[in-house]
Design a protein around this nucleic acid. Structure first.
Lengths: 138, 138
DNA sequence: TTATGTGCAAAACATTTGCAGGAGT
DNA sequence: ACTCCTGCAAATGTTTTGCACATAA
């Protein structure tokens, strides 16, 4: 944890920052800013929602965490920064990791198929999660 | 156009609906609701933004158009409904189609790699568009 | 004629920001 | 000390919604 922060010269190690990072690291799914706020508030009841947003943004900009621009109305955050794909439950909106090989080759295909300078890609699967399937089987 | 609407028993063919569909069909990129509003307003100056949102939502629910849940803060809309991928300019946010083969096989991989019932996937490439590259070459 | 759609304005969300006081280095 | 950071609240931006009137079928 402290190693993470030590690599960030312009960022102070505040209690708020530390606890946000700890709580995000505890979960395997990818919470929204508001969900992080709820998690953190159990330990720091006086923290402001603005502080949570500011820190998540700052940590994402520094590459310590990942900001996921997935479907749904809210951004989500991921403590794991190495490239991987995601799946989103069409019923409840939950987002989890999908551990399949990176499809690096499609970047070349995309470069050939467009006038853009292609930098990368993200794959988002959709489906129904275990607990939503249990509620309404089909 | 009317064919499209005829297949939708519960939807009336209103002027607003028709013009929204026409304007969306004219562009190859994928405008936000507000951009559609601006396009449509040139022909129907008294149309309300709420009407645009309601119709885009309704048309997407009926499968006549596609609602894109891509990166950025706004949803975008696509007159082409058959499956294809997109690229988003990291500088200006513009979204275009990317015409590469569908990667159907990764759905199986995702099914094997998770406890979800996998339904499909979407790939979003990121990069810089032609006009942003021209402005700031690197 | 009557259910559906529209314009308008207000409400509901998600996120960002200004500021005065607080805390890390 | 000197920044940077925080809590709070207000502002912003996007999307949804309630309602009285209009209109397609």
């Amino acid at each position: 944890m402290e190693n993470m922060m030590e690599s960030l010269p312009n960022m102070r190690l505040t209690t708020q920052r530390q606890i946000i990072l700890e709580e995000l690291g505890k979960v395997t799914c990818h919470p929204t800013a508001n969900e992080v706020y709820d998690m953190v508030r159990k330990r720091l009841p006086r923290i402001g929602l603005g502080t949570v947003y500011r820190n998540l943004e700052l940590l994402a900009d520094s590459g310590v965490i990942l900001k996921l621009e997935v479907g749904g109305t809210q951004k989500r955050f991921d403590a794991t920064v190495d490239p991987h794909y995601h799946i989103r439950c069409s019923a409840c909106g939950k987002v989890d990791d999908i551990d399949i090989p990176l499809q690096e080759h499609i970047n070349q295909a995309a470069t050939a198929a467009s006038s853009y300078k292609v930098l990368g890609h993200h794959i988002e699967f959709s489906g129904f999660c275990h607990s939503c399937l249990a509620k309404k089987p089909d």
